[in-house]
Nucleic acid binder design. Structure first.
Lengths: 337, 337
DNA sequence: CTGTTAGCGCATTCAA
DNA sequence: TTGAATGCGCTAACAG
């Protein structure tokens, strides 16, 4: 900046004024400064700028994983929205590991991020308290912290309803022997899907037909949900013989279908399968997968907007937003069996 | 830091010494400072620290996309390696878009990153010159800039050989009518795969049997390679009737297989298919995919090591590393047809 | 061993 | 309309 000032024969302060448009500077000076800055290829130093401004132009986005199109979708959407709003996003891959989460939270605070989007919650919710202590605004996507920590703003999707839709669809197909499989229940969303499933089972009076309910354990590799589904299906088949299997996410459903095929079980004629998330792949496999669609893009937009409001100090009264899922009927559990 | 100093009755400099272990401090003082820092929940300000140090503890990782397990694998590996080395990674998703690339490069320089890993090259290679101007060290993964820009260090995989292995396998199966499909040729790696394919065709004297060669155009959605493969297969079938199709990446191969199935063409009996990358999904679809495996993990380790050497000013003599691919034979092009 | 001090590059108040 | 001076929080050379 000093170089630019010298080159254009003005003071460093004037250069700052011009570059940030933060004072009325005469046209000729402005033009000269801009030209010199361009010529010298000046790029400002965010360290110095943010130190002075006492706030960074970066935000954090914490997600459990990237090898999952549900998350990578969220990453792409939010990253784009925030970039267009002028923020540089720190993507933090927590792998549901408390130590890694803690490292990221600390690093994010060190970096003086303007705010954080936490996706799908953290394994150790207490870690989020650090954000509160350091007055870092954050919004939770697809998980409700409830009274766990401070009452954080969040954007949720009605997971209870999602599971309900799945069971309802099975019932409409005349299927009553239903099995369920889920990854370990890390957060409220997974809990809600589980609860919603049980609720629907009761609602439709299917208790006595309920088949094996498989819940992954800590050995579950969250990077390979397809494999987890494959394992789950094996477990389910060894204990029961359902007419329908509902998987907590599409990747698990894909694994389930793979196992069923290997066992010469026809989908959907012998066992119908429903997934959750509507990832792109769900429409690419054979049979195409009936699944629950989540309004991911809307969630990102809303979450990003809430965060920006928090950053700018606008008290947003809509502290909790609930979005509605819908069912996408495809071949693995068709309209008519 | 001042608070910690006051609380423990020492000067702010002493606190800095203790926290960074940068001077011999007496045990009692050290312990007191550490305790107070812990109690106050002190987290250092990277802006100030880096401003003073004139170098950040962040690095950039530029990738074209995240919805692709090849890239997400690279992201996870490098991110982990760099995190364990104490660096916070800025993941930059360029979508092969020159404007976005430029924004990221500028932002990375603003953030005073210690170094950058550029994966698969940039659409506009000139953008990288900014790194040179600002003396930001960078290493290119899976692409060779050659004389395009400065002669940057890089870690490559022998893509010519990869394509050769695929054609060779077809030949060993008695297949000579081979088609090829690729996304738009953005970089050297894609060019090499293409060249390698052509080379092998000539080498085995298959010129007169060569079927349609499909090259994606600018409308290709790089986030949906499966779809791109689906389109490609349609195009190929409308122009020729190969016995084998070689796809430039696994996602395209999966799309190809999907289209073949829809057209009642059996894989591999009617048409055998080979992919490239060995993504996890390739072993999960039906038929499982024969593909070319890339030593991704090794590439990340080597690239990260090179970057760290550059950052630390150790002139690394091995400026170019070439790794070898291998073929993974599965059902879509089995050992014996 | 510990304290004092001088910037790092920039935004901004106050004078001119 | 512009310039000089100040300090953001921290590291490191130097003095004690």
């Amino acid at each position: 900046m000093n170089d630019v000032a010298k080159a254009s024969g003005v003071s460093q302060a004037t250069v700052s004024y011009v570059l940030n448009n933060t004072a009325e500077i005469s046209e000729p000076v402005k033009i000269r400064v801009l030209e010199e800055a361009e010529k010298l290829g000046y790029i400002r130093n965010s360290m110095a700028r943010n130190l002075k401004m006492r706030r960074g132009n970066t935000i954090g986005l914490m997600v459990p994983d990237v090898s999952n199109s549900y998350y990578s979708d969220i990453i792409k959407h939010t990253e784009k929205i925030m970039r267009e709003a002028g923020y540089f996003t720190f993507i933090c891959i927590t792998m549901h590991n408390p130590e890694i989460e803690d490292w990221y939270v600390t690093s994010l605070i060190e970096q003086k991020v303007a705010g954080v989007l936490v996706c799908y919650g953290l394994a150790n919710k207490l870690t989020l308290k650090k954000f509160v202590n350091y007055a870092v605004p954050f919004v939770v996507l697809d998980d409700d912290l409830q009274q766990d920590v401070v009452d954080a703003p969040c954007v949720l999707i009605n997971n209870i309803k999602g599971s309900f839709l799945a069971v309802q669809h099975f019932v409409s197909l005349g299927i009553s022997k239903i099995a369920y499989c889920t990854e370990p229940i890390y957060n409220k969303s997974l809990q809600d899907r589980y609860d919603g499933f049980m609720l629907a089972i009761n609602e439709f009076g299917l208790q006595q037909h309920l088949q094996h309910v498989y819940v992954g354990d800590d050995n579950t590799d969250i990077s390979d949900m397809i494999w987890a589904g494959y394992i789950a299906a094996g477990e389910i088949l060894s204990k029961s013989r359902p007419e329908g299997i509902f998987a907590v996410n599409d990747d698990m459903a894909i694994g389930v279908i793979r196992r069923l095929k290997e066992n010469q079980i026809r989908v959907p004629q012998d066992i119908a399968v429903i997934g959750y998330d509507n990832v792109p792949l769900s429409n690419m496999i054979s049979p195409t997968l009936t699944t629950i669609n989540q309004p991911v893009h809307t969630m990102c937009i809303q979450g990003a907007a809430m965060l920006q409001n928090l950053i700018e100090g606008k008290e947003d009264l809509r502290r909790k937003i609930m979005l509605e899922p819908s069912i996408i009927v495809r071949e693995s559990a068709p309209q008519i069996l």
